[in-house]
């Protein structure tokens, strides 16, 4: 009987694809170390060591570093890593294989969310034990939910970068975007610390709006209302989703043959 006529459960493929993606990412120190260590290390240093630590400040930075951690995992998993796999020809093998495209992306996203959750867990532990942060259960859960959602728009953005450029260029652009999103989004250091121009630039960045939503969860009010933040994040997600989709569709046109 022809193998074309037989079905394979997408869930079965998703499980093995996810397991493999996770193993691969975990064994790649240039991905797993910065993704797991940077947010926790920065949070520990800025949240608990420098200046005059307080539970309020620890909660503030818990919100922004959570978004930062998810953004980092997502940008690098979908940006630099995809560009590398594309250069190596691995992506071609995957595209030729009977791996449904949606399963491929879902597995990668689940891998990213796993890393984001490990970071979130680590931050929570530091926040409670060192930072003295105390939140309501619904606040903790909301932070978890927001950190999961954060991975999606940056996955699209990473894809749009990773599917276009060559490895070196994509790695450079990913790093640049990562840096701009972190600084101007106010994820590393609170925006009010910087000159006023920073806050103006921030309005254009999804990292700022995700950070603002996270801050709302821990009780810090922002200059815009929640609906505006969500709207801007959604538009950004749709825009880069379209870029990513078009890059995926037109991947063959830059080949020589």
């Amino acid at each position: 009987m022809s193998t074309a006529a037989m079905k394979v459960s997408n869930l079965t493929i998703l499980v093995s694809e996810y397991k493999t993606e996770f193993l691969k990412a975990f064994r790649m120190p240039q991905f797993s170390l910065p993704t797991l260590m940077f947010p926790m290390l920065f949070y520990f240093v800025f949240g608990s060591l420098i200046g005059t630590p307080s539970p309020e400040r620890a909660a503030y930075l818990l919100a922004t570093y959570g978004v930062f951690g998810s953004m980092t995992a997502s940008l690098f998993a979908f940006g630099a890593a995809i560009a590398n796999e594309r250069d190596e020809g691995w992506l071609e093998i995957k595209r030729a294989a009977p791996l449904p495209t949606m399963v491929f992306f879902t597995a990668k996203l689940l891998m990213t969310i796993s890393f984001s959750m490990m970071v979130t867990g680590g931050l929570f532990i530091i926040a409670i034990t060192v930072g003295g942060v105390s939140l309501e259960p619904v606040q903790w859960l909301s932070l978890i939910g927001l950190n999961i959602l954060t991975t999606i728009p940056f996955a699209f953005m990473g894809l749009a970068i990773g599917l276009r450029g060559k490895t070196q260029a994509a790695a450079g652009i990913t790093n640049l975007v990562f840096f701009l999103m972190s600084i101007f989004g106010g994820l590393w250091v609170p925006l009010p610390v910087f000159p006023a121009i920073f806050s103006k630039i921030a309005i254009a960045l999804p990292s700022y709006h995700l950070g603002a939503l996270a801050l709302e969860i821990v009780g810090v009010e922002s200059q815009l209302n929640v609906i505006a933040h969500v709207g801007i994040i959604l538009s950004f997600g749709i825009l880069f989703g379209a870029f990513a989709f078009s890059a995926w569709r037109h991947m063959d046109s830059d080949r020589k043959g």
Binding site: S2, A4, M6, V8, T20, L23, R27, W90, I93, A97
Partner: peptide, 21 residues
């Protein structure tokens, strides 16, 4: 299409697999 891909096993020229697996 997924049916077409399921009917083929392929080995491509100069394509590398991830080193860490």
């Amino acid at each position: 299409s997924i049916e077409a891909r399921r009917a083929i096993g392929a080995m491509l020229q100069s394509a590398e697999l991830p080193n860490l697996l």
